[in-house]
Design a protein around this nucleic acid. Structure first.
Lengths: 214, 214, 214, 214
DNA sequence: AATGAATGAGAGTTCATTCAT
DNA sequence: GATGAATGAACTCTCATTCAT
């Protein structure tokens, strides 16, 4: 009997779908209004589910944001770690790949990037230390890439790898912000290429023109 | 003795002082707890004044944040514009000065920098467009500096000055964030020198070691 | 037993009841303390519901008052319009009926009348123009009744129907006020009859004694 | 020495003027915004004096309203009592005079009338019982006039003088309101004459056309 | 699983009133 | 008399969370 099946079979797939459906809606409204300005009812409305259902799948509104973060950040971090561990790639190539990864992601999932950058990386950074730790994970990978490059003589050794990692990440993060504000265009492969090229020149080769005097 | 002074008793200086006193307290608690978690009463308590007095000097809690921003940002922007307009300085020197300005400011007024970076530059960015415009002002100056350097052959001409400006600012901003998180040390002149040196090498000369094989 | 009923559990009837329950409580406390002196919590307390529930059913405290007004005034207005449109009744009879309607209502729902007269018909009259319009509706009906009577030779033609309508309504309104102040008694059919009789004589026949000299 | 004189000579006339000046301003803003929506600072601004000076001349904001009321109402009441006591006038003539008094006042001091009608006669009637008593004074006079007319056979004896007094006053009050709303015109002697005529016919002679079939 | 009515703590803001000058 | 800075109680409205159905 079908209706009974409906009642009793909360198949894991269905449950996972519901959770995904809510997360997708949450990313959208967080990106549009910001986390603080988003009400739980906004998420529910966008997801097309009832108010209280959010609390079946998530512990709190904060938890929804955390899940958005963790789901995406962990994937990102895994890619980063795999890159870092790859002995066949030069440090510069690794950094190039990270930049390309982020810049390309802007075209695929701008809302997700926006939410992570804007809301998670900032809002209650000093309160939610787990997120700080997660962020540190990415910084650490980049720092290790730089340190590796320095050891192998690929990258300048006379600079702080830690500060360099911050500069590298900050540059990328602000590019994301500029994109969200509509100030930096990278929605087509051509536009993205310009951005990647500029990142390459600026961070790897330096702004100074080697042909220039002084 | 000036009896007239008695008449205008709550002298303008006192009023200005009160406003400064409240702004100072606001910066402190905003930096500690974040704007959203700060109650108006927290500001009042820290400033040692009554609740309602905040509303004597400011229109709203938002207005307090705006004032923090405007007071400091306008000064910063002025310095930037003066720098940009100085024909005697090379583009690289101008960028070096901007970086030094910010890095040194971290030691002098870390809370103010933190509030501006964290609260103003982020939260509700898309809502409060005046702030976006203010920020754009700084981006524009840096872009103009880069463009000037490109025209004069000092800086690489084959990159987007707009994207470069974002990278430059993002790098500095994230350094500020790293400092606030305690991950980047620059509280002494020596530490600051390391940071400045890394910024110089990374952004102007590039991470790649010129001696290194490609 | 209807399991479906269980599902839709907080049945629409219940929701409507809750709204009615809150409106009833609001009318009571508005009548006792006046709109401005009534706190939203007073309404909630009287209704036996939680604070925030008021805002589940109403947009604001003002909205509660508006609903009190609209629910009752629209009914009143409908009766008035039906009366006016009835070709079988003489103008005098129509006016008599309106007076009787209001005077009898005083016995049935004194608090509601009081709130409408005191709070809606007065406070902020010049701000809430929708209410003014609603009131005008009633004035218009009475004016039309008077004009109809004048055309048919039933009522004096040499007076302003507009001013007459105001006089008629003002008389009734002040009787309501006098009742609320305890100065006019019309809680029993006998007392109400005296009032109706006086209205009839004063407004229809005039205060002057036709047998009197002068 | 002049400045000393300024300091020390708060001549009674000056003080009285200041009070009048504040009262005048208060009437204006009360009429414009209503008592509750008027801030003490609004009164001060209109009067061109400082905030706290109001509290030199009045005990509270309520007290300002009371003074507006008392100053004008007592004058009105005195005229009413003199009228009532005049043995040479017929009751009808007395009522006519009262109506004319109010209608003419609308042209001279509309704001004052508006404030008294709207704010004093209503707002917190049940709280400020003194005002109720003051109002009763006027009702009593009209009731006595009616009773006198009834005794002398001038007015119908078979109606409640009390209810009649309410009707009479209510009619006038609502005419004032209609005037304030711009629905009743009586700013010129001609317009005022129409209104007076309608009051005369409606209240004294009755709406019914004596020539009309019953 | 799903719904949405119900809860109530919490926060921003207003403004009458006081008081030092 | 005159000023307006200072006070803080009061009040409305929001919204995350709970829970009966």
């Amino acid at each position: 009997m079908r209706s009974a099946a409906k009642k009793t079979a909360p198949t894991p797939e269905v449950a996972a779908d519901r959770k995904k459906q809510i997360l997708k809606a949450a990313v959208e409204v967080f990106a549009e209004r910001g986390f603080h300005r988003t009400r739980v009812s906004d998420i529910a409305k966008r997801a097309g589910v009832a108010y209280g259902l959010i609390y079946h799948y998530f512990e709190s509104k904060d938890d929804v944001l955390n899940c958005v973060f963790e789901e995406n950040w962990s994937v990102f971090l895994k890619v980063l770690r795999d890159l870092e561990a790859n002995p066949e790639l030069a440090a510069a190539q690794k950094l190039r790949s990270i930049a390309a990864l982020l810049i390309d992601a802007l075209q695929i999932a701008p809302a997700t990037i926006q939410v992570i950058i804007q809301e998670v990386s900032r809002s209650d950074r000093f309160v939610h230390t787990e997120k700080v730790h997660a962020f540190e994970g990415a910084f650490t990978v980049v720092r290790q890439i730089i340190e590796g490059g320095q050891r192998r003589g690929e990258l300048r050794a006379d600079l702080s790898a830690q500060v360099g990692a911050y500069i590298f990440f900050g540059a990328l993060e602000t590019i994301c912000t500029g994109f969200m504000l509509g100030h930096i265009r990278c929605s087509t492969p051509e536009e993205a290429a310009v951005v990647k090229h500029t990142v390459e020149l600026t961070l790897l080769h330096g702004l100074l023109d080697p042909k220039g005097a002084k």
